[in-house]
């Protein structure tokens, strides 16, 4: 029993990666078996037989390497995501710190921020549609709204928790407000903000697909809709994999920054 426990809880790299690989293989196998049981209009297997059961991975390969139109859709989606998410970053980060510095402004806006933080943004889409219409920018607004509040909320909470002792030191050394930002507020808040940014990346992805679905169809949302309308489940699943891949990439990138800028945090007493 002990030996089993020791093995199961081993932290050796080959055991770890072996486990991950096995888990992925098992999941893939399950997918394949289930997929082969169903009609291709209901469910597609992972690899498939290429005749009655077209596979998801072959379709993914064709999409990415042999379908310029699909790549254009992908780029369209990325552009939408990047614009909305970038704007959210650009506005939410400084705004969060400003709110932490100006108590009255924070008190005035706090209840709105909390309300909007918990509101499912998808519920606002009908308004955006009726007020702003079908252009590129209404879609950007949707992505922006999905991403903005997690970043703002986490940045604000982070900046608020700056230790008063640090601000006291800054005052004693006659720091300017600008230097307080660069020396203290920004480095202190960054790890908190990055937690929000990681959350926001996931949400913005939902916003991206929702916008491409419910406003003027475009990008990956449109690909998803078209495939679905044609009962092409291999196409649907392949596009879902693409979106999953995007999500994981954004998370990983945010994770790298988080590691880099929060090295001091876990070790600080």
């Amino acid at each position: 029993m002990d030996r089993v426990l020791t093995f199961v809880n081993s932290d050796r790299a080959y055991v770890r990666w072996g486990t991950v690989l096995l888990a992925l293989l098992a999941g893939g196998l399950l997918w394949e078996v289930v997929g082969l049981q169903f009609n291709q209009a209901i469910m597609a297997p992972l690899i498939g037989d290429g005749v009655d059961h077209p596979g998801t991975l072959p379709r993914l390969g064709r999409y990415l390497f042999d379908d310029p139109e699909y790549l254009l859709s992908l780029l369209q989606s990325i552009q939408l995501f990047a614009t909305g998410f970038g704007l959210a970053l650009l506005i939410a980060l400084p705004f969060g710190i400003i709110l932490a510095r100006l108590v009255m402004l924070r008190v005035a806006l706090e209840s709105y921020i909390l309300m909007l933080y918990v509101t499912p943004m998808i519920a606002l889409i009908p308004f955006i549609l009726s007020i702003l219409g079908f252009d590129f920018w209404p879609k950007v607004l949707v992505v922006y709204l999905f991403a903005f509040f997690p970043i703002l909320y986490n940045t604000l909470e982070g900046a608020r928790s700056v230790k008063p002792e640090m601000l006291e030191v800054a005052k004693s050394f006659r720091s300017s407000e600008f230097a307080i930002w660069t020396d203290i507020l920004i480095p202190y808040t960054l790890p908190f903000a990055l937690t929000g940014i990681r959350q926001a990346a996931g949400r913005a992805l939902v916003g991206m697909v929702a916008a491409e679905f419910f406003l003027s169809t475009s990008g990956l949302g449109e690909e998803l809709q078209t495939a679905s309308r044609n009962f092409d489940m291999a196409g649907v699943l392949a596009t879902i994999l693409v979106i999953t891949g995007l999500g994981i990439s954004f998370m990983k990138i945010a994770g790298v920054f988080e590691q880099k800028y929060s090295a001091w945090r876990g070790l600080d007493r």
Partner: peptide, 20 residues
């Protein structure tokens, strides 16, 4: 009325910046 040039303080809480 405010911190003056030429006056420096050493704090009980050290007040060092952990990222510096």
């Amino acid at each position: 009325t405010q911190p003056r040039e030429g006056v420096s303080m050493v704090f009980q809480h050290f007040g060092l910046f952990p990222w510096k």
